[in-house]
């Protein structure tokens, strides 16, 4: 399905250290538009560190050292203005972190930071974002209550809406359903499938079944190294590396 398209992200020989500890070693891979690219692997194998490098959130960590290159649409991300990079490459965290504001203000936060002040325009963005994340019907009558009052699943969809409001190109999900019940999880996964039509999706999960359900291609990362990368169906039926097979069949993890 990816054909000969140019990659959205091209990660080249990328290595991460935190202090003296290597978090990711010589990673090279491409991520394409309109796919759900899943990354699986046990805890502490470098998956989240990779995500936070893609939008340079790791720059906030004083111990962070990197080598290699990450290209976004062919441009090295270090040469982009960091604010516009983060606007283009958004992240949804494992825990929903609503700001202590109303639902409306949470979603309008990003657009306001990017200079949109017109009230009607903001209201339109908020409504669209909430519709896209399937939260609109549940909250349309109470947009001005504190976002903290929503349930866990609703908060997570609020965070997705908040990101959609800044019109990103890539959306990264860092174990977005780890704290959710099965029904809320199913709704988030449903949202992912729809979002993929318009965005590039990178999904980090330690839920192997989730990767199998929604991923187009899946990478297995173990202790900072890329073990295997393939189309999700292939990876789950005919894994080449024994460690991959052991992990997806639940022999460790």
């Amino acid at each position: 399905m990816v054909g000969a398209k140019a990659p959205k992200f091209s990660i080249q020989d990328f290595t991460i250290h935190f202090g003296n500890v290597a978090a990711l070693k010589n990673l090279t891979l491409d991520i394409f538009c309109n796919e759900i690219f899943t990354i699986i692997g046990p805890a502490n194998s470098g998956k989240s560190s990779l995500l936070q490098s893609l939008n340079r959130l790791n720059d906030l960590n004083a111990a962070y050292r990197k080598s290699g290159k990450i290209l976004l649409d062919g441009t090295n991300i270090d040469e982009l203005e960091v604010e516009s990079l983060r606007k283009r490459v958004s992240i949804v965290f494992a825990l929903p972190f609503p700001l202590p504001l109303s639902i409306f203000d949470n979603i309008a936060y990003g657009p306001r930071m990017h200079g949109i002040k017109n009230k009607a325009k903001l209201a339109g963005i908020v409504e669209n974002s909430l519709r896209e994340s399937y939260l609109w019907d549940e909250v349309k009558d109470r947009l001005h209550i504190p976002a903290m009052n929503l349930s866990g699943g609703q908060q997570q969809r609020l965070c997705i809406a908040r990101i959609l409001a800044v019109e990103p190109e890539v959306i990264m999900f860092d174990e977005p359903t780890s704290g959710l019940d099965p029904i809320s999880t199913a709704r988030v996964e449903e949202t992912l499938r729809v979002l993929k039509e318009r965005y590039t999706i990178i999904l980090v999960t330690n839920n192997v079944a989730q990767a199998a359900r929604v991923g187009d291609r899946t990478a297995f990362v173990l202790m900072g190294e890329l073990v295997e990368l393939n189309e999700t169906k292939r990876l789950f039926t005919t894994a080449v590396d024994k460690r991959t097979d052991d992990y997806i069949t639940g022999k460790f993890g």
Partner: peptide, 21 residues
């Protein structure tokens, strides 16, 4: 810390983050 991270991850600048979040 999460308030800062969220704001920065939405593309707000450092000062905007301090000022608004």
């Amino acid at each position: 810390q999460s308030f800062r991270i969220v704001s920065l991850s939405l593309g707000a600048s450092k000062w905007q983050t301090i000022r608004h979040s």
